[in-house]
Write a protein that binds this DNA or RNA. Structure first.
Lengths: 225, 225
DNA sequence: CCAAAAGTGTTGCTTGTACACCCATGT
DNA sequence: ACATGGGTGTACAAGCAACACTTTTGG
């Protein structure tokens, strides 16, 4: 059956978060064509006839970073008529969390992409600022409902590193003692018998996420100061 | 500029919630064409060249219920390739809350639509069951982050009516005393000097939402049993 | 020795939960 | 009189916030 109805360009845009040097960053590409040449943009791509928007987002992510099997979450559809002055394009935004020690740096570097700290973003094209804000809310929401870090930190990490990640995500400090107690009480971390001695004199135990992926979180977990 | 990329049918589907007789219901239409004739469906419509998806959803809602200026929230995009066997259609789902005392009953009745209790739904076409589940989660999420009822209850209502609404939304009982204290502590309700004497012997004060629409909710508000 | 992070403990406060209890009134 | 919902109060538990304090070790 053929529907006699308008067809539209549908794109996906990926808000790609990474964590590096104590800062939450996101990956942006310089735009080299008019209009708005010189500004920065999210990486996107058009949805094809034979794929879901989730597939399209994965495809875009793999094409640009070399990564597959990455955690992604749908943010929202952005569809104001004039959002892209060049053409009518509806965009479905996705938030992706990637580990900066794993992406294909060669590939990313070639394309001119750079990591930008979330609180020091450059000028962005179209409504990409709004899309990023949405992706950031999605990330915060996820981080308060379950313990994230597996997607952003190295395999083994100290509780300080995890805390700094959360401080970057929520842009506010957490009390070290309370953070430690809360996080450990969730029972999703396993202490290793190795210590990190580079970031403190005393040395801090490394932790890792213990396999049992799905713990039933009853409620919002982060109300820590 | 013309983009040399695929164009797709983009639809909106509205999950329309109403509250009546102590039950949370949603409005469904019988499908009278093959395939899946006889099953029920959400009301939807195609997004036009010159409108945002939000506009399209509003338009669909107004066309089917006569209502405008209704609270709506985007749920998510549903885009599996085979979701509509007739054609490739991406659907953006919206959740709408309407007051059953305000919609155009004539219009709705003509179209054959019926209100179905959320826990006794008929067979649904395509992935509309999944879409409804998403809309329901969106509703619950909103109801736990702020006090809803303005959109679903009459202008004046008793605290019992409000509680029954919340019990319908969360499908579990709330303690009457605790519910009352929590709700009143939010400071968004104003007590009227009228009593409802039809639903209890003693009579219960009517309340209404006081104008100041936006109260800053710091945290999830409903953790009441 | 001092600074800085690691790690543990304590205390007070807020908030939810589970009740008990009295009130008002229509039947 | 009694059942029913209206409305208030209380006692307990859980969880968070704030902060004190001890440990360890590199500089």
């Amino acid at each position: 059956m053929v529907y006699n109805h308008p067809k539209l360009h549908v794109a996906v845009d990926c808000v790609i978060f990474g964590y590096e040097e104590g800062e939450l960053k996101l990956l942006l590409w310089p735009r080299d064509i008019e209009p708005e040449s010189g500004k920065w943009s999210l990486m996107g791509g058009f949805v094809q006839e034979s794929e879901s928007v989730e597939n399209a987002a994965m495809r875009v992510l793999q094409r640009t970073t070399g990564l597959k099997d990455v955690y992604m979450e749908q943010v929202a559809a952005f569809s104001e008529v004039g959002r892209d002055p060049g053409a009518r394009v509806i965009s479905i935004a996705f938030a992706a969390l990637i580990r900066v020690d794993k992406y294909d740096k060669e590939l990313v570097h070639q394309s001119g992409a750079l990591w930008w700290p979330v609180n020091k973003l450059p000028e962005l094209i179209f409504d990409h600022g709004e899309i990023i804000a949405g992706g950031f809310r999605t990330l915060q929401s996820r981080a308060s409902n379950e313990l994230i870090g597996k997607e952003l930190l190295p395999d083994k990490f100290t509780l300080m590193q995890l805390r700094l990640l959360y401080e970057a995500i929520f842009q506010r400090p957490f009390d070290p003692g309370n953070f430690r107690k809360k996080v450990l009480s969730l029972g999703v971390l396993e202490r290793l018998n190795i210590k990190n001695t580079t970031e403190s004199k005393k040395g801090a135990y490394y932790y890792k996420f213990n396999g049992q992926d799905e713990v039933a979180y009853n409620d919002r977990i982060f109300k820590i100061h």
